[in-house]
Amino acid sequence: MAASDWATKDFYKVLGVKKDATQDEIKKAYRKLARDNHPDSNPGNKAAEERFKGVSEAYAVLSSADKRKEYDEQRSMFGQFRGGGGPTGFGGRGAPQDFDVSDLFGGLFGGGGRGRSRRPQPRKGDDLETEATITFEQAVDGATLPLRMTSDEACTNCHGTGAKPGTTPQVCPKCQGSGSQTGAAGGLFAMTEPCDECRGRGLIVEHPCDICWGSGRAPSSRTLNVKVPAGVKDGQRIRLKGKGGKGDNAGPNGDLFLVVHVEPHRLFGRKGDHLTITVPVTFDEAALGAQIQVPTLDGPPVRIKIPAGTPTGRTFRASGKGAVTKAGGRGDLLVTVEVQVPAELSDEERAAIEALREARGAGSPRDGLFEAVT
């Protein structure tokens, strides 16, 4: 494969996905192509074997968020170079100078200048995201949740080598394990590119692992005990550093992002660090005043004094009966009263209300209201 072919190689096209494809779409495409073109399923079929190598190579880059980002950036950079020429001494005025394309792609493939061997670079693991639904009480008080996670990590069957157990990968005889090769392109450029024999790995896998098909990575499941802090809100995104995908070549692990969904409560609501509740009161309690008991979320009920003449919708405060704050204290419980009007009246109740009407006289709380808008 020529150096210019490598520089313009479209990994997205190899896997048959769009440039903005999700990781799930990339993984699904790779698995299908790997199964269809696996050497064990196509004995003696060199074309299928080459396609298998190609899709493995493409997946190795696109399955990693960091590698994919670098690939996109460097491919775009090379495309600009091809389209618009280069700086002075690089297709401009003056004598032609050698250009090592590994300066563009070195970060992605671990290559250096001419004569330098390829060294695997540490890679941060993929950032992962998951969701969890918790109860209202857990959101207020905090909780520890067991999360079942599935991600691509080093294959446990081959321990990341890509080779079938009992066999080992061999050092590539063409690049002697460097993973790169250098050649000339038309006498103008010195181009360093991944070895076309080992696809840049520096190793040859003669007997691919039956689980990962030679890629060295496979889905892995694990259970994490994640502490959700008290006071978490519905839809909040929590970052758990180092709990994401495993890093490559001694690189750091990625991060895990947990999106929390909080189930609504039958009685209580949230307003910042405060809890809210609406309680019904009778007409006589609101008119004459009363003391009522109000439930709390995780303790005994509190008594609220309702003054005489309390209107519907008025809110009272019970200090320290709300949600846990970041400082470790508690907010308040905000109690809103709602005056209940009976749908049906007994004869005695009707007679009492009619007597109240007569005692109040002909006055109305709407007197003068309409004159104010005429």
Rank of each mutant, 00 (worst) to 15 (best):
Arg116Asp: 05
Gly54Thr: 11
Ala308Thr: 01
Val279Asn: 12
Gly94Ala: 01
Pro169Ser: 11
Thr150Ile: 01
Arg222Ile: 08
Ala352Asp: 12
Pro169Met: 11
Phe90Leu: 15
Gly329Tyr: 08
Ser64His: 14
Ser117Met: 12
Val14Thr: 02
Ser63Met: 03
Leu104His: 03
Cys158Trp: 00
His207Asn: 07
Gly160Tyr: 01
Lys27Gly: 05
Tyr71Cys: 00
Ala48Thr: 02
Asp196Asn: 15
Glu354Phe: 06
Arg314His: 14
Arg31Met: 14
Lys13Ile: 13
Gly272Val: 01
Phe257Asp: 12
Asp210Pro: 09
Leu356Asn: 07
Lys164Gly: 00
Asp152Ile: 05
Pro194Leu: 04
Ala154Cys: 06
Glu153Ala: 12
Asp40Tyr: 00
Val226His: 03
Ser180Met: 13
Ala2His: 13
Pro365Ser: 01
Val101Gly: 10
Gly235Ser: 09
Gly186Thr: 03
Pro365Cys: 00
His207Thr: 13
Lys53Ser: 04
Val226Thr: 05
Gly112Pro: 09
Val337His: 00
Pro146Ser: 09
Thr192Met: 05
Asn45Tyr: 02
Arg119His: 14
Gly86Arg: 03
Thr276Glu: 10
Phe268Val: 02
Arg35Ile: 03
Arg148Lys: 15
Asn45Gly: 12
Leu356Phe: 15
Thr296Cys: 12
Ser178Pro: 10
Ala359Leu: 08
Ala230Gly: 09
Phe11Tyr: 08
Arg330Cys: 07
Val294Ala: 04
Gly113Thr: 09
Arg222His: 10
Ile304Gly: 03
Gly89Ile: 00
Val14Leu: 04
Arg330Lys: 07
Ala154Thr: 10
Pro43Asn: 03
Arg116His: 08
Gly44Met: 00
Cys198Gly: 01
Gly313Thr: 01
Lys27Val: 08
Gly186Gln: 03
Pro39Asn: 02
Val205His: 00
Gly110Ile: 04
Gly91Met: 08
Lys305His: 07
Cys175Glu: 07
Thr22Trp: 08
Thr315Asp: 04
Thr167Ile: 07
Phe316Leu: 11
Arg119Leu: 13
Ile204Thr: 15
Trp213Lys: 11
Asp273Asn: 14
Phe283Cys: 05
Gly247Phe: 05
Thr223Ile: 11
Val373Lys: 10
Thr223Leu: 09
Arg123Cys: 10
Glu348Trp: 13
Leu334His: 12
Arg199Trp: 15
Glu70His: 11
Glu137Pro: 01
Ala163Val: 02
Leu128Asp: 02
Arg123Met: 14
Thr315Asn: 03
Gly269Asn: 05
Glu344Trp: 06
Lys13His: 07
Thr296Pro: 02
Asp66Glu: 15
Pro280Trp: 10
Val337Ile: 15
Thr278Gln: 15
Ala139His: 01
Gly91Thr: 04
Asp5Leu: 07
Gly86Leu: 07
Gln121Lys: 15
Ala355Asn: 05
Trp213Ala: 07
Lys124Pro: 08
Arg68Ala: 14
Arg237Ala: 14
Arg93His: 14
Glu358Phe: 13
Gly235Thr: 08
Gln80Gly: 06
Ile304Val: 02
Phe370His: 13
Lys174Val: 10
Pro342Met: 12
